[in-house]
Amino acid sequence: MTEQNESLRAPAEVKYADELDWLESVDDGPKPFSWRLSPKMVRLFVLGSERADGLEREIPQKWFGDRTFVERSIVTLASDRGLLLIGDPGTGKSWLAELLSAAISRNSTLVVQGTAGTTEDHIKYSWNVSQVIAKGQSRESMIPSPIMTAMERGVIGRFEELTRSTSDVQDALISILSEKYVSIPELDDDNIVFARPGFSIIATANSRDRGVNDLSSALKRRFNFVRIPVVTNKRSEAEIVRFRTSELLRRYRIELEVPPTLLDILLQSFADLRAAADSATSDDEKLESALSTAEQIGVLEDAILHSQFFGDRELRASTLAASLVGSLARRAPEDLAILNKFWHGVVEPRTQENPSDTPLQEFLEGGRRALAALS
């Protein structure tokens, strides 16, 4: 495994290796199958420790959401059913799947990405052509998919964007989830790969992609659904943005503080834009952006990097406004018209009510300049 300081983004089991080692050393709870941690410790790793847990070491929270979603996900993975995390873009589905896989299996990298080009080979196996020509078809010349590897090791496999894969691929998953084995008809001997205890699949699906490739009722029955809602609590959303932004700053080795006033402006702007989208009567009156927490983090990251490389290394409200406009104005003229309306109908009146609020005044002017440049 590549060392964390040599990789652009370390997987959770590498990033939190020391923490996972310590939790494993003090874990005396019952563990299903080949799990590395007990269900209680998996939950604690994901949601963080509390004083009542009585641990000698504090475990930070890594996923922010209702604990019942995490508990139901863990219980599902301890059963013989797959887990399907479904929700809007940016709700943390993939991050939760990665954390669960890291805690349970110490491997979150056995991933299949669902696309229109994903084939049955991607979830079962393919062949090393040169090996087949030289030695014929055998287990040695077979290339197992990440899902088959998870079956053989008795660990968690992941399937991202399940509804974006074709019906053929989805149908192939049905036999894997129900029969728990994969047949290899090309071989005469050793032609069945059985899943070891502990194997399961965590799939994710974007609720906005409903209708791209609908799941069959047969496949739905083999998954437990956990719906992850959009975070609407301002305090929780602020914690998520701070947590993810601090990680990004460490990755880029940037020493910069995000002023609380600017974070409040960002959170309020997204809340206002969501409210406008909810009251819109047509898609043309809604931004193409999902206005998710992940997109807030993207806006803030863009502003921080711009301040670092092209500014005075201090995050300013005008830079934040320009990043927000640049990130959300995806369609012309529709998105530009919506943002213009927001700036003149929401931001401007708010600055008039608070004329001494310098950051808000800078935010107004920065947004105006960014919109004028795009118009």
Rank of each mutant, 00 (worst) to 15 (best):
V112M: 05
T2F: 09
G211S: 11
W343P: 01
W127M: 12
L99Q: 03
E19N: 02
L162A: 05
V193G: 00
K341G: 15
A116E: 15
T149H: 09
H344F: 13
R369W: 05
E24N: 10
L187A: 04
Q4I: 11
R36Q: 06
E247P: 01
Q137D: 05
L173Q: 08
L84M: 09
N213P: 01
V111H: 07
G90N: 07
P259S: 11
Q308F: 09
R313I: 13
D80H: 08
A172C: 09
Q361Y: 07
T76N: 07
R106F: 10
F45H: 03
E285L: 12
R221F: 14
L55P: 00
H122R: 05
S167A: 15
P333Q: 13
Y16A: 04
P144G: 06
L267W: 00
E237G: 03
S323I: 00
R222M: 08
R350V: 10
S323T: 03
N206P: 11
S101E: 06
E257P: 07
A332N: 14
D28E: 14
D312N: 14
R51M: 11
L248D: 02
S269F: 04
I240H: 07
A373M: 10
R221G: 10
F309P: 03
F64P: 01
W95Y: 11
W95P: 00
I174R: 04
S207H: 06
D66F: 02
F309H: 12
K93Q: 11
P260W: 04
R369L: 11
V26I: 15
R368V: 09
S138N: 07
A290M: 02
S246P: 02
P229E: 10
F159V: 06
V111P: 01
L273D: 04
L37W: 01
V325R: 00
D302C: 07
V46C: 07
R208C: 10
H344P: 08
R369P: 03
D190A: 05
V299T: 07
